[in-house]
Design a protein around this nucleic acid. Structure first.
Lengths: 233, 233
DNA sequence: TTTGTTTTTGAACCCCATTCACTTACTGAA
DNA sequence: TTCAGTAAGTGAATGGGGTTCAAAAACAAA
């Protein structure tokens, strides 16, 4: 009874084909300008058939984002594993993380944004579909990976789960923000530096801080013994 | 001929009334669930009249965001002026900046996000309306204020425009990201800490860095003379 | 009052996402 | 090979909502 299995496979494949077609159209036209007619044409099927494979247009977005998030999670695992094994400098690991993040977020983050956005808009109607739930759960998994890495690596100040979690959110927030800054608005071109350069410098700054090591000129009062570290918060 | 003036005033007032009505409806229903019929009803006018005052629904969003951005810019000016005059600790100033940012971004940022988003979606059709242009320009003005502050304050490592700009973007990105983390997705409740606490700790971390001050145990090779500062990148 | 202008209205228009009655393709059994 | 039953696929119809427009109402000036 290989028929059932074959059908199953074909069905999955068809779903993937539609998704890829959708991605192509979105990328060339942008979300709002893409109609399901366009997608159907690109996928060489009829409009109605889309609904046999996806609950809605939004669900297609979610599915794309989910694919991206899963890829990111896989990349992240790789990056962190290598980082620990080779005892690579933290900023290098974070740089690679950022790179993976943008690989995910540039094509898919838009969908992600939109989903978050529409989630909020729809919160009183219907909280979320299963695809969106999966998306959230994969994302939280990635955050957890990062947390574990930070606790395990001796290069970070944070050495317990709680502290590390905050660092993770700081990094995550920074990445989200940088993406918005550069990619989300098209303003990137206004800046004199590339995203890549910028990110690596931001990471550098996050590592060592932006404050002047010796804060004020007029307070030698509590310079008792910590003169050498100077930066222990 | 005070008639003309009165009409002028009434027109402006009417626009404001519509905008406020729109804001109320958006806040109670969310964007996507708000129709122009709703807004018209709330403003006690007919649907068509909205179009005498605003180019489109999107333009209403942009106008709301603009109001928010202008308020933020004003607040920021105040915060930074006080900070410099009173030589307040940098993290305090940044904390107040964050507060002002969220005051703006919580009610209006959603519109802002959406505009950025739709800007991207529509970039090949029509770049932008005048309201959106103003919004961008006000925002860039705020960023510039921050840059100037950072150059002027001795508490920051950065002491030239170029360095300071990067710090500004780091901060801005962090704020954007934190907003998304907490407010944009409703995930805030999942975390064990409040946005306010989180932000202040993030600022702390950004000031002093997340790296362990003495990076590795096995490199006393270049401890020539900078042993006291230890953190000069 | 009359005339010209501005404001206001709400029904009509149009663009989609979504649905649905229907057709076609396929499968397993007779 | 035929046939019933099911799954896959179609595209025109539906409905919601942003936008437009012709006409009415309100208003100003003469």
């Amino acid at each position: 009874m290989g028929v059932k299995e074959r059908k199953e496979r074909e069905k999955l494949q068809r779903a993937q084909d539609i998704l890829e077609a959708a991605r192509r159209v979105f990328e060339s036209k942008g979300f709002l300008n893409t109609t399901l007619q366009h997608v159907a044409k690109e996928a060489e099927i009829s409009v109605g058939l889309i609904y046999r494979y996806f609950e809605s247009k939004e669900d297609m977005f979610a599915s794309l984002a989910l694919k991206g998030a899963e890829q990111f999670d896989k990349d992240l695992t790789e990056v962190l594993k290598n980082g620990l094994e080779k005892k690579a400098p933290a900023k290098e690991v974070l740089g690679q993380t950022a790179k993976a993040f943008f690989n995910f977020y540039s094509p898919y983050g838009e969908y992600f944004d939109m989903l978050l956005y529409s989630y909020k808009g729809l919160k009183e109607v219907q909280i979320q579909g299963s695809t969106l739930t999966s998306l959230m759960s994969v994302t939280l998994g990635s955050l957890d990976q990062l947390k574990t890495f930070i606790v395990a690596s001796p290069q970070f100040r944070a050495n317990n789960e709680d502290e590390a979690l905050k660092v993770v959110f700081l990094l995550w927030g920074m990445l989200l923000g940088c993406h918005k800054l550069f990619d989300g608005s098209g303003r990137g071109q206004l800046f004199a530096f590339s995203q890549e350069d910028f990110i690596s410098q931001v990471i550098e700054q996050i590592m060592v801080g932006i404050a002047e090591p010796t804060p004020t000129i007029d307070s030698p009062k509590n310079s008792v013994s910590i003169s050498n570290k100077g930066l222990s918060i």
